[in-house]
Design a binder for these strands. Sequence first.
DNA 1: AAGTAATCCTGATCGC
DNA 2: TGCGATCAGGATTACT
Length: 294
Amino acid sequence: MPELPEVEVVRLGLAPAVTGATVTNVEVFDERSLRRHDGPAEDFTHRLDGATLRSPSRRGKFLWIPLEPDAGPAREALSLHLGMSGQVLLREPDAPRDRLTRVVIALRHPEHGPLRVDFVDQRIFGSVMLEHLDAAGDVPDERIPASVAHIARDPLDPRFDDERFFDALARKKTVIKRALLDQTLLSGVGNIYADEALWMSKVHPEQPTATLSRRRARELLAAIRDVFGQALAEGGTSFDAQYLNVNGESGYFSRSLKAYGREGEPCLRCGRPIRRVSFMNRSSHFCPHCQRLR
DNA sequence: AAGTAATCCTGATCGC
DNA sequence: TGCGATCAGGATTACT
């Protein structure tokens, strides 16, 4: 499932294609993908049609493309969240559509000509919407969508405050994996990269956050950045401008996973079998030998 | 404040 | 061959 690296690969792929392009047509094939848009599909279609797009931004797993305003700072953005199974595909204008395409946005770029942005989503947990951009508060001139306001910065954000994150962990009365998945503490981490970062830093997923030493918390945060960077590097190498594959399940990043999905297979450090346990209605994969509760 | 459960969903897979 | 059950879970909301 798409987490920060996958969403960033989408952003990087979209940037040259959409920046400065004008929307020439919008088609909604399944209104459920607009569930989070405040208004009917026609409202979405009419407001987006004719708009000129700016360079896309991202925080955690949230992606948005500001619309060029008549004057002053951008006030509106096209927001996308991939949910569990969302994909964004760049296509030629007359290319066939994937069966699971929910929304199609046709563009004309001043240099590259016409092209299509297809939002494909099997499980429809993802969403597309138009929403307001508001001042972020802590940084002048930074504007973020309303749906992102309550999300913490992600660990690749230069303004992410490491010490503040450690302080929050020390105060929390919960276990570390739950904290990693809490997007208000830090954003961008999902089930797969949580397991990977915990394995890499040898932290047990159910270690209470308050008992994690500052030093181990620091190692864990470094591991998150490592795992993200590695996935980004892989996504970068297999990136194709015509096809932005972000399907994590069959996706390319799975090649280097050390814990997730490896139940019963030998731990790549100690050789003992990786265990899988049920946790928060999902799965945790970890090495019971390397990752001890302390 | 923390944790649980329900909600939103469909395609792939598996047992019978 | 087909059919029902199971699984994959990110974010949000409503409760306890």
